[in-house]
Amino acid sequence: MSYLLNKLQLANPRWSVFSRILAAALGGYALATSSSLLITQLLMSLVGKYQGIHIGLMLGFLVYTGAVMWAFSVTTATRAWLGLVKLNVIFLLLTWALMQVNS
């Protein structure tokens, strides 16, 4: 086991880059999705459900871009992970709360 761990060289900065790429790709996509849900709930009463969904989806790519840029701007990969998870949770909670209000 320890041999394997040594072999993987977890302290190598490459792993930190790899972890950050994963955070940006997965966390960013999750944020694009959760933000689109939130936008739908925010706009639903104004423009109707379908347009709300549609606008949320269209903005998703821009949210994704922003999330990736942010993930690569923070000092460590761990921070990137934590930040994206936090923001996702907040978006989902807000979505849930708005869903209660809207329904």
Partner: peptide
């Protein structure tokens, strides 16, 4: 397709067709 997770979560098949027709 790319934002499929969100659109599938929010609409069922019929709603999806209706939404597409609106767009």
């Amino acid at each position: 397709m790319y934002m499929g997770v969100s659109s599938n979560f929010q609409t069922n098949d019929d709603e999806f067709k209706e939404m597409r027709k609106e767009i």
